[in-house]
Amino acid sequence: MGADNKARIREFVLDNIAETELADSDDIFERGLVRSMFVMQLVVFVEQEFGVQVTGDDLQFDHFRSVDRVDELVARKLAAV
C-alpha cells in the first residue's frame, strides 16, 4: 500500500516533467524540473488521488519538494483519516 502510493506520486511527477531520471529524494523545484506553480497541481493531485484534504499547516512548501516528502505527507494524512 505504502510503496504503491509512492509509485503513484512518482508517476504523476514524471508525467509532468521532461526528465526521465528522477530519484525519490530529488528536490524537483530546486532542480528546476517544474515551475513554482506546479505545487498547486501537486496539492490537487494529493487530494483527488488519495481522498484527503490538504489545508492549513499541511500547506508547507517542504511537504511538496520531492516524491519522498509528498509520500510522507500522504501517509500522515491517510493515518489521520
Binding site: 523545484f29 505545487v39 497541481q41 496539492v43 512548501f61
Partner: peptide, 15 residues
C-alpha cells in the same frame, strides 16, 4: 485561471 496556483506557490515558497 492561474490565479489560485500563483498565489499558493508565492505564499508557500514565501516569496
Amino acid at each position: 485561471a492561474d490565479t489560485a496556483g500563483k498565489i499558493l506557490s508565492q505564499r508557500m515558497m514565501e516569496l
